[in-house]
Design a protein around this nucleic acid. Sequence first.
DNA 1: ATTCAATAGGTAAGTAAGTATCGATACGGA
DNA 2: TCCGTATCGATACTTACTTACCTATTGAAT
Lengths: 223, 223
Amino acid sequence: MKGISGLSIPEPSLRRLPQYHHYLAELQSRGVSLVSCSTIGRDLKYIPVQVRKDLQFTGIIGKPKVGYSVAELVLAIEAFLGWNSVNEALLVGAGNLGTAMLGHERFSRFGLQVVAAFDVDPSKIGQYIYGKAVLPLDEMADLVQRMNIHLGIITTPAEVAQTVADEMVKAGIQAIWNFAPVKLNVPEYMIVHNEDLYSSLASLSCKLAKRFRAPLQENLRLN
Amino acid sequence: MKGISGLSIPEPSLRRLPQYHHYLAELQSRGVSLVSCSTIGRDLKYIPVQVRKDLQFTGIIGKPKVGYSVAELVLAIEAFLGWNSVNEALLVGAGNLGTAMLGHERFSRFGLQVVAAFDVDPSKIGQYIYGKAVLPLDEMADLVQRMNIHLGIITTPAEVAQTVADEMVKAGIQAIWNFAPVKLNVPEYMIVHNEDLYSSLASLSCKLAKRFRAPLQENLRLN
DNA sequence: ATTCAATAGGTAAGTAAGTATCGATACGGA
DNA sequence: TCCGTATCGATACTTACTTACCTATTGAAT
Ligand SMILES: NC(=O)c1ccc[n+]([C@@H]2O[C@H](COP(=O)([O-])OP(=O)(O)OC[C@H]3O[C@@H](n4cnc5c(N)ncnc54)[C@H](O)[C@@H]3O)[C@@H](O)[C@H]2O)c1
Ligand SMILES: NC(=O)c1ccc[n+]([C@@H]2O[C@H](COP(=O)([O-])OP(=O)(O)OC[C@H]3O[C@@H](n4cnc5c(N)ncnc54)[C@H](O)[C@@H]3O)[C@@H](O)[C@H]2O)c1
């Protein structure tokens, strides 16, 4: 019962699907129509079995000796991820990162449509950033209701992220994509995704530190 | 032999350490000097055992009934992650996201010092963004040698990311933090970290789609 | 002083993810 | 037409991560 038609996909598999999608879209744009797990695995540095298992969750079926239809795979992944239907979102915190997100038109191809930004900075309110209005925070609840918005993006300083999250919950937002490095305290039903860049930085700097200071650490440990 | 003095920490644990660090720094700034795993776990929504296991990798030791010294913990995590010594980095692609990264002075508190940016856009070359010079790409190798830089950040469009990565390898860069949604093809020794925002988006939109279209999908599956 | 409760730290069990293996199937070439 | 091979899909196995449990230690209360 598990596997096909994905009753529940492991998070790691889920996070690999967009990578396959990028890769497959690229293939498609080059006119390739069939692809096998071996090929995908070779190019993306995964073993074929893992690719196959991941793809099985989308419900796609391949043909032995041939592989999968690239077009079908792309559609299957998009459908599975909900990238067909548009998710309208709002963004709070029109600073550096927020501006970058607002300017990233590519999101719209993956079901994410940021409809407006909110901020407290008077010099920003009333402006348009990449065509999106920057509104005062107290108009958020109204917009959420009117446009039936489910997703909120937080790109404010960490100190106010919890406050903003509270506002979002009150306004009726269902899911939060949080770029501030804090754990948000929200009701159980909320879907929260923390995008902690420092996690990645940690992993990187840890590995770098190991590489460049490994001999020293070895010595220390021997004492 | 494993555990203490972290011969090898699981990636998930490693990625949680910065969260603990944020939390503990916050505690510290409020004057709290002692903390237990139960408290951390309550606030960060982890079970105490997991917190304890994670913290053990940093080599810290706590006292029963008391917990850990917040100050010691902060230092232990920073040391473990290599956040004490500065990693000088360069950034390629001074666009939206690149600008946001350049403006994020907070990175410097976590061992990441971006010293310069590179771009191909003539209108950007020669400018300063948040005090950092934007240089032409062909000066990269020279800078890497002169300043002994190990880390490169890629915030260019996906199409040119591989080219940029090749340049970095040639220049002598050891680690890449890649924000473009492509798998980079680099020599074995390179440390590469892909920051694929679409992975997170996928996870989010998948869950949202499930919540708001779950009944329909159930029906479809029953046919 | 003694008991109790909270907590660290180690070990073991359980769960989830990743990997290997095997039979079945479809295409290409002999 | 038949055979070999690449590939899929399923199952079994292995590894890694998480969670539970137990013991020892500490501080506080009686
Ligand atoms: N810039 C980066 O590269 C980067 C990297 C990692 C993490 N982050 C995180 O992303 C977040 C934003 O970073 P940034 O560099 O864009 O910061 P920023 O200071 O440029 O922008 C923050 C914006 O939030 C607005 N704001 C402040 N209080 C608010 C409130 N109560 N309600 C609504 N808006 C409010 C500010 O007016 C400002 O426009 C931070 O939490 C930061 O830690 C940023
Ligand atoms: N902006 C976002 O919020 C966001 C979100 C997710 C992912 N990304 C990814 O981050 C990357 C950058 O996004 P962005 O929005 O900053 O794009 P952008 O177009 O604003 O910036 C790209 C920059 O790269 C420069 N560039 C182009 N070719 C180059 C080359 N060969 N060498 C050096 N520099 C070159 C351009 O001149 C430009 O300044 C993209 O791969 C994008 O997919 C961005």
